[in-house]
């Protein structure tokens, strides 16, 4: 089951955050903004302390959930968290990226790097996640 989605722009501000299931822990909007920026910096530091030439964090495993991060060529980061046994995180992230290009970037009223408030994007995101959540139940 998927828990949360964060979208972070190339300068490290959180531009979108959504709980993807009722099981997601409650975060205040201050906390989610802070988590978004912290992840952005840790992503960069992980490449700096690396013992070998490396990109930033792509996967993270913890005892209670797992996290996947997709960094696009333009520098935006899509970060999704899910319960430990959830499959196909990468596929869903790719799907979300496609929704973002279709319903956010092509929205004439959307300004780049600004917080995302696009009805169509949220609707399709919910549909996509619901489909995967239902399949993994």
């Amino acid at each position: 089951m998927f828990l949360q989605l964060f979208i972070i722009n190339k300068s490290g501000s959180l531009i979108f955050h959504q709980d993807l299931s009722p099981a997601a822990p409650r975060l205040s909007s201050n906390d989610s903004l802070r988590l978004g920026s912290t992840f952005h910096s840790l992503h960069a530091i992980a490449a700096q302390v690396a013992p070998i030439a490396s990109s930033g964090i792509e996967k993270l495993e913890t005892a209670t959930y797992r996290l996947r991060c997709l960094q696009t060529l333009t520098g935006a980061k899509f970060v999704i968290t899910a319960q430990p046994n959830t499959p196909e995180l990468e596929v869903v992230l790719q799907g979300i990226y496609e929704l973002y290009t279709d319903y956010v970037l092509k929205n004439p009223f959307y300004e780049l790097e600004m917080p995302i408030r696009c009805e169509l994007f949220t609707q399709h995101l919910e549909k996509l996640v619901e489909r995967y959540n239902a399949a993994s139940r």
Binding site: Q4, P25, R26, L27, D31, L35, T38, F39, S41, L42, A46, A47, A50, P51, I52, A53, S54, S55, G56, I57, E58, K59, L60, E61, T62, A63, T64, Y65, L67, T81
Partner: peptide, 27 residues
């Protein structure tokens, strides 16, 4: 240290001892 903090916060609760590993494209 910050990553542990982040992991705890993102998972709700204090999340002590929760971080196990992370992976980049090369390590």
């Amino acid at each position: 240290y910050s990553l542990q903090e982040l992991v705890g916060k993102m998972g709700g609760g204090d999340g002590k001892g929760a971080l196990q590993s992370f992976t980049t494209d090369s390590y």
